[in-house]
Deep mutational scan, measured.
Amino acid sequence: EAHAAIDTFTKYLDIDEDFATVLVEEGFSTLEELAYVPMKELLEIEGLDEPTVEALRERAKNALATIAQ
């Protein structure tokens, strides 16, 4: 499951495998979680700032909209 989540994140969020791995290690496994989890939870991840989190959430929401079509 972790590998599938990493693949999904790299494909749809335009991030590298290392960043995707950090997200999975922090407990995220779906685009929905990244799109809708409280921003505070993402900001608790070391190295993430508000602009990065906002961009990540926007990419996740856009990916979900694209997949739904």
Results as ranks from 00 to 15, higher is better:
E1A: 12
E1N: 15
E1D: 13
A2R: 12
A2Y: 14
A2V: 11
H3L: 14
H3Y: 07
A4F: 10
A5Y: 07
A5V: 14
A5P: 08
I6P: 03
I6D: 02
I6S: 03
I6G: 03
I6H: 04
D7I: 08
D7G: 09
T8I: 15
F9T: 01
T10A: 07
Y12S: 04
Y12A: 05
L13M: 04
L13I: 03
L13G: 01
D14W: 06
D14V: 04
D14H: 09
D16H: 08
E17G: 07
E17P: 11
E17Y: 13
D18P: 09
F19Y: 07
F19P: 00
A20F: 02
A20M: 02
T21W: 15
V22Y: 10
L23M: 03
L23D: 00
L23G: 00
V24D: 01
G27Q: 02
F28Q: 01
F28Y: 14
S29C: 09
S29N: 12
T30W: 04
L31A: 00
L31P: 01
L31K: 01
E33L: 07
E33A: 08
L34M: 06
A35C: 07
A35G: 04
Y36I: 12
V37C: 10
P38I: 02
P38S: 10
P38Q: 07
P38R: 03
K40T: 13
K40L: 12
K40V: 12
K40M: 11
E41H: 10
L42W: 06
L43G: 05
L43D: 02
L43C: 05
L43K: 06
E44N: 13
E44S: 14
I45T: 03
E46T: 14
L48Q: 03
L48T: 06
D49R: 05
D49H: 06
E50W: 12
E50M: 14
E50Y: 12
P51G: 12
P51W: 11
T52C: 08
V53I: 11
V53N: 02
E54K: 13
E54S: 13
E54L: 05
A55M: 14
L56C: 02
L56V: 05
L56K: 00
L56Q: 00
E58R: 07
E58Q: 10
R59W: 03
R59E: 04
L64C: 03
L64M: 08
T66A: 14
T66M: 13
T66Q: 14
T66P: 03
I67E: 06
I67S: 05
I67M: 09
I67F: 02
I67N: 06
A68W: 02
A68L: 08
A68F: 03
Q69T: 11
Q69Y: 00
